[in-house]
Design a protein around this nucleic acid. Structure first.
Lengths: 245, 245
DNA sequence: TTTAGTTGTCTAGATCAATAGACAAATTTT
DNA sequence: AAAATTTGTCTATTGATCTAGACAACTAAA
């Protein structure tokens, strides 16, 4: 198909560049017939590299659980679906993905009481350097880490949000306990970045992996912002579905 | 700050892992004082590597235009802003980013008439294997490639969409010429992937770079789908802003 | 059973990445 | 002026990645 040469001396090993390319083609069903990849020799010819280099790439994909090699037969793709995470006015974690997975879990990693930075203050409509509660959480789906979030709440309005989250394992339920029966997503910004070291640790990713970073503000029904949060998703496990309606 | 060890034998050179980490920290203003990075020796101690390895990382960031080193003084970050690309009911390319850049340009890379795949057919509400026009385009902002798209239109309804795009360089204007005065974004799906070889070529990216991939359906004012498209953004040049209202 | 095609494993050498140390060149502080 | 701190450049060595070739082990088809 594409016969562009691989870049050497780029800091990314050739076998990993091939792995990235094949992962993409598998995701879009290019050059995959009957769930079977071309043979190692064929791929080596196509990428103009040694067969061992192709094997290193396939080995990496096998470790990710994307393909499976069988001696004498070939290399086959194992179907895996991304979790579709809805983003709209009524975005909620467990509700949104609940029908796609068996179990969801939220864990509190860290709680601290900080002074609001200018950015947080303007998002929450409070005076700069007033007190905010900062919650760092990790969310699992089927015991695979899916995302990690940092949320800020006005400490004066939600003094007990931390303990409420710890007992419920859910922001929505914690807000209910704090008197917020319903809330709306006011804004969302999405970026993509390379995984940081903290990401590779908490989300169980390899270096060079991708995280989808969303920055969101939630408001109560009167339109007052109540939560400002940054969430980092393991990009190869999710697809963000934007709900316009 | 974070003292997690770097992963060796991962196919990603250590200097590139450090570059990725620093790029992220620069973006979030961590460990950057007065626009000045810590000295090479300090960074080498922190990452527990040789100073030359840190230099390789800084060299890469300098080539990307993110930092600038001055002998005897230090290494400084150069301010660069991502273009914020709005996604909502009324998403349009040039309108949305027009106030952030000087010039925008759209170029037609390829036009073909294909049979609709099941996916395209269901998105456009047409019978499978009926004819569709496929437009591959590249969009620049200030002469930097920003995104590349593949769009499908019903060939029966929009026979002249190709020439209309070529003369106007804009999907919106092309649709106007074809009798669509106004249209709405019906759905958007967002994923993040590693750049393919075609991405590195057209979007001028390095291997290992990230692309934000959106899949969207646009409808006319009666709610009939008119365009199905996949867009791949250079992730380090944009931020997607979700408009819920 | 034979043959062709596939993945698995081993050895050896060539190229690239990372470490180590030394010193030059430029800037700021003392 | 001198000292301290910074980036820039050089050489040499060790370790990881990529290439090359050969052959074993397994599978499916002739």
């Amino acid at each position: 198909m594409i016969s562009k040469t691989l870049e050497r001396r780029s800091g990314i090993a050739i076998w990993r560049q091939i792995a990235d390319e094949l992962r993409n083609e598998i995701a879009t069903n290019v050059s995959v017939q009957n769930n079977r990849l071309p043979s190692e020799t064929t791929l080596a010819k196509r990428f103009e590299v040694n067969r061992h280099t192709v094997r290193a790439a396939l080995n990496a994909l096998a470790k990710e659980g994307i393909v499976e090699s069988r001696q004498g037969q070939g290399t086959f793709v194992r179907a895996r679906k991304r979790i579709s995470y809805p983003i709209g006015k009524r975005t909620r974690f467990s509700d949104g993905i609940g029908n796609q997975v068996q179990t969801t879990r939220g864990r509190l990693l860290n709680l601290s009481i900080d002074q609001a930075t200018p950015e947080i203050a303007s998002a929450l409509y409070i005076t700069p350097s007033s007190k905010v509660i900062c919650l760092k959480t990790l969310s699992d789906a089927d015991d695979m880490p899916l995302s990690r979030s940092t949320s800020w709440f006005c400490a004066k309005r939600f003094p007990d949000i931390g303990t409420a989250y710890q007992t419920t394992g859910s922001i929505t339920k914690a807000l209910t306990q704090c008197g917020i029966a319903d809330y709306l997503r006011q804004s969302t910004e999405i970026e993509a970045h390379h995984a940081t070291m903290a990401d590779t640790e908490y989300l169980q990713l390899s270096p060079g992996a991708i995280v989808l970073v969303t920055q969101a503000i939630n408001s109560d029904m009167e339109g007052n912002p109540i939560q400002f949060s940054t969430t980092r998703f393991a990009a190869d496990r999710v697809s963000l579905a934007i709900i316009n309606a």
